[in-house]
């Protein structure tokens, strides 16, 4: 395997693991926030001082904060649904959700429980990205760079069309309304990570 392919696979694995952590975080495993931020700091230098508190009380506070932001039962202070940001009326399960569904279908993926749980939940969008990155890695290992590049392109397209169009605002909302360092620092970590990804897209485009 050429060195650059090896580097690409290594890089993919790191990014995959980060997305996977964020995916799990958004899918309810909120305790993984700490790990996500720690992993981020290994992957990219984060200037902000991410400082998760360790005591148990704060963990409980973080859970309540997490629910205030993302789960309910009240008005979500940082809705994790794309349509909540992109739909003019801030509703869920809207046309914007269907665009995401369409994108998944394009890659042969369908959400289970669709129409009850919106496809554009950030946890599902990150799961989709994990799928794309995993396929890219697999194809690289199989020396099928053409298909791997196809998945890479899909990933970039999905990020640019969807993730990057709303997640920064979502993270801003977390920073505005979040009360605990766990939720707030995870948002900072996520922003930094996405900024790195975005910068990579730009550098690729410049290279092209």
């Amino acid at each position: 395997m050429p060195n650059h392919t090896f580097d690409r696979i290594t890089d993919l694995a790191k990014r995959y693991s980060l997305y996977s952590l964020f995916k799990q975080y958004y899918q309810g495993e909120w305790e993984l926030a700490r790990k996500a931020a720690a992993t981020i700091q290994q992957y990219i230098p984060v200037n902000d001082n991410l400082s998760f508190q360790q005591d148990h009380q704060l963990d409980k506070a973080a859970l309540f904060d997490y629910n205030r932001l993302f789960v309910g039962p009240g008005k979500l202070l940082a809705s994790p649904y794309e349509s909540a940001y992109r739909n003019a009326q801030g509703l869920v399960m809207q046309e914007e959700t269907l665009f995401v569904r369409q994108f998944y279908l394009q890659a042969g993926i369908e959400v289970s429980n669709k129409n009850a749980f919106p496809d554009d939940h950030l946890g599902l969008e990150f799961e989709f990205i994990c799928y794309l990155l995993a396929r890219e890695g697999e194809r690289l290992q199989a020396d099928d760079s053409s298909t791997a590049n196809h998945y890479a392109a899909l990933y970039q397209e999905f990020c640019q069309q969807h993730i990057l169009s709303w997640v920064y605002q979502h993270c801003d909302d977390i920073l505005t309304h979040g009360r605990t360092s766990l939720c707030r620092d995870t948002a900072i970590a996520l922003v930094r990570f996405l900024q790195t990804e975005e910068a990579n897209f730009l550098s690729k485009e410049e290279f092209v």
């Binding site: 629910n67 789960v71 309910g72 039962p73 009240g74 008005k75 979500l76 809705s79 649904y81 909540a84 801030g90 509703l91 869920v92 399960m93 809207q94």
Partner: peptide, 10 residues
Amino acid sequence: YSSDRIRFPL
């Protein structure tokens, strides 16, 4: 489809 609806038991 209000984003404010209660989604889960809490």
